[in-house]
Design a binder for these strands. Structure first.
Lengths: 149, 149
DNA sequence: CGAGTTGTTGCAACCAGTTGCAGTAGCGAG
DNA sequence: CTCGCTACTGCAACTGGTTGCAACAACTCG
């Protein structure tokens, strides 16, 4: 939670990571991790539930969400919220990065490292707050939409 | 939506504003606006539904949410998302401002105008994106929580 | 290998919010 | 003041996600 763990999905290490904390390695968790392993970038919770179900139709949503919670605690995924507030899970191999979402045209962009640094600085300097940009999606209006009005 | 309308709640003007757009002024909308008029800062959707119900127990949630949608279109409220992704409505008289939320201790702070300006600049300069900071809550860890580890 | 602990599952109920639709009622025209 | 158009309401069903609880099954220890 404090420093960045290797976010480049070391899915194979999941069982050990769990057991090291006194947690358990179960078939259901394997299903979720298998589904995650096929994802690059982001998935919404519902999407992931769907993927799990397509492999193993008996998958229960609450189990998937609870598994995601423990995977987050272990540092294997991170969750955030899309522009509509819905949950979104970030998985490796990409480093932490946030998103911009235009409310006019609906397009999205990744936040660049230089931009991220500027935001981090704005809050770290003055009040010592370490912003987690990967958690959210910044909304607003993109250049072309602004010019269009 | 483009420029800032007078967000200092001119609730009295609501009926005219609605009619000017071919929309209607109904008892249910009055209930919602009365509830909003007593709010300073933010309300979650559920909270507002509750307030409406306490005055007029027959209030239906979907009506409240739909009313909030039209009030947003008219510029009387703005919606955003709290740290957990739940809806949050910003009402006057405060100017647009975002929030910081510490995931460790759960505390929240308002984003200062200078900090906001830094964020705005970071995206406006390079790519011409106008971030709407009032829409979101930035999460991270505050100074004391960082020092505690 | 068998028993006990306790983390995990499945389920059902629930919360916040959205949507489709038939019936109701604002509001402008006559 | 009445009529008609159509925005709006109420309802019921649904989506995404959470929670409490009893039954279950990983893992540990003997």
């Amino acid at each position: 939670m404090t420093e960045s763990p290797p976010l480049v999905a070391p899915w194979d290490s999941a069982p050990e990571r769990l057991r090291a904390r006194g947690l358990r390695w179960t078939p259901q968790r394997r299903t979720v991790i298998d589904a995650l392993a096929e994802v690059r970038g982001h998935v919404t919770g519902a999407e992931l539930v769907e993927r799990c179900r397509s492999v193993h139709p008996l998958t229960i949503p609450s189990t998937v969400y609870r598994t995601l919670d423990v995977l987050e605690e272990i540092g294997l995924v991170r969750h955030g919220h899309g522009p509509d507030g819905r949950e979104e899970f970030h998985v490796g191999p990409e480093p932490e990065h946030g998103h911009l979402h235009c409310t006019s045209c609906g397009a999205s962009w990744e936040i660049g490292t230089d931009e991220a640094a500027a935001v981090l600085d704005a809050f770290d300097g003055g009040r010592g707050f370490a912003v987690d940009l990967s958690h959210i999606t910044l909304v607003g209006r993109c250049r072309s939409c602004r010019e269009a009005t």
